[in-house]
Amino acid sequence: MNRLTYEQQTKVTRTIIKAAVLMLEFGAESRLIETIAQRLGNALGVDSVEVSLIPSAIVLTTLSNKQTQSVTTTRRAHHKPINMSIVCDVQKMCYKVEQEKLDVDYVIKTMKEIKPNYYNRWLIVIMVGLSCACFSYLNGADWQGFATTFLASAVTMFVRQELARKKFVLIITFGVTAFVATLIAALAQIFNLTNTPDIVLSSSVLLLAPGFPFINSVLDAVKGYLAMGWGRWMQAVMLTAATSIGIVFAFTLLNLQGW
């Protein structure tokens, strides 16, 4: 393997951390981020890659020339919606670099072309509403409750998309959307639209369950990334608390007793 100059190693280091930040921002677990960074570094000619992760940043060091030359850099990671297509694209790129012995310029070019694979927003609204409505039906809701749950969940998803588009803080987004979902679902109880209003109320806010952060927090903690696990767990708890506040506020406003 050719000896890397300091400038070449710096370029490689900056490229690797961009890939790692991309995976962190879009929801990859910590072990996967570290593994891809190390594999990408080895494929691009460095001896080893050391990664330190926290929920909002990555510190990455590369060692080369028999570990006598090191480069360290830090990048901040900004929160973005979970998107596994981005994570998969970075993994595919890493695999191709390993198999075809491609250089750092190919990695830079490929990362510029990686874009989020978004579904049609109206398809998401309909499918989220339908999934929550199906859950309510499976739990014993009647057809009127099914329709009310669909309406409440679909409108809530639309509101969530609009708040995200306007770049509201995620905690505020969850609180507001929980309030909207409960407000609409409560109509079933106020106007006696269904015999199962409690199921409608509980099913309409299912789209706000922060399952992915909770799962990643457990995976990170089990695999030894305690700082990442704690950070992601706290994020999930805060989102759950914001959702609860939105629900309670709607109940208070409508003077309802709860589920």
Score class of each variant (00 low, 15 high):
119 Y>W: 14
199 I>F: 02
204 S>E: 10
239 L>Y: 00
75 R>N: 13
231 G>S: 03
229 G>Q: 14
239 L>C: 00
109 K>D: 01
17 I>M: 02
103 D>E: 09
51 V>I: 10
247 I>W: 00
31 R>V: 12
179 F>A: 06
121 R>Y: 04
45 G>C: 03
175 G>S: 08
126 I>P: 04
151 L>T: 09
172 I>T: 13
160 R>H: 11
46 V>E: 08
220 D>G: 15
120 N>M: 03
145 G>P: 00
97 V>H: 01
118 Y>S: 12
153 S>E: 07
255 N>V: 03
98 E>G: 01
41 G>N: 02
120 N>E: 04
50 E>R: 15
123 L>H: 08
106 Y>N: 04
70 S>Y: 14
137 Y>Q: 07
120 N>R: 09
249 F>R: 00
162 E>G: 15
152 A>T: 02
144 Q>N: 12
58 I>P: 13
120 N>G: 03
235 Q>T: 13
124 I>Y: 02
53 L>K: 06
237 V>L: 12
18 K>C: 09
170 L>E: 07
164 A>F: 15
166 K>G: 01
136 S>F: 05
52 S>N: 13
58 I>M: 09
60 L>D: 10
26 F>T: 15
38 Q>L: 01
168 F>R: 07
166 K>N: 03
17 I>A: 07
8 Q>Y: 00
211 G>I: 00
12 V>C: 13
219 L>K: 12
221 A>V: 05
259 W>K: 00
26 F>E: 09
168 F>M: 12
249 F>W: 03
77 A>V: 15
53 L>C: 11
146 F>H: 09
176 V>Y: 05
30 S>T: 05
105 D>K: 05
172 I>Q: 00
70 S>P: 10
26 F>C: 14
80 K>T: 07
249 F>V: 14
212 F>S: 09
221 A>W: 05
26 F>S: 10
82 I>F: 06
216 N>T: 07
29 E>G: 13
243 T>H: 01
184 I>T: 08
88 C>L: 15
246 G>T: 02
1 M>D: 08
50 E>Y: 08
2 N>I: 05
147 A>F: 05
40 L>H: 10
15 T>S: 11
133 A>D: 02
55 P>N: 13
113 E>Y: 04
164 A>W: 01
220 D>E: 05
199 I>Q: 07
196 T>E: 07
138 L>W: 04
140 G>R: 08
23 M>A: 15
159 V>P: 10
121 R>T: 12
133 A>C: 05
238 M>C: 11
18 K>P: 08
181 A>P: 02
202 S>E: 14
13 T>G: 09
215 I>S: 07
103 D>N: 08
231 G>P: 01
108 I>A: 14
225 Y>M: 06
87 V>T: 08
65 N>T: 05
136 S>L: 11
139 N>C: 15
157 M>S: 12
161 Q>P: 04
50 E>C: 13
164 A>H: 12
124 I>V: 15
109 K>P: 02
113 E>F: 01
123 L>A: 14
79 H>T: 13
219 L>V: 15
81 P>E: 06
206 L>N: 03
47 D>Y: 13
237 V>N: 05
55 P>H: 14
135 F>R: 06
163 L>N: 03
240 T>P: 11
11 K>Y: 13
185 A>S: 05
112 K>I: 08
102 L>G: 14
207 L>I: 15
149 T>M: 12
5 T>E: 15
122 W>E: 04
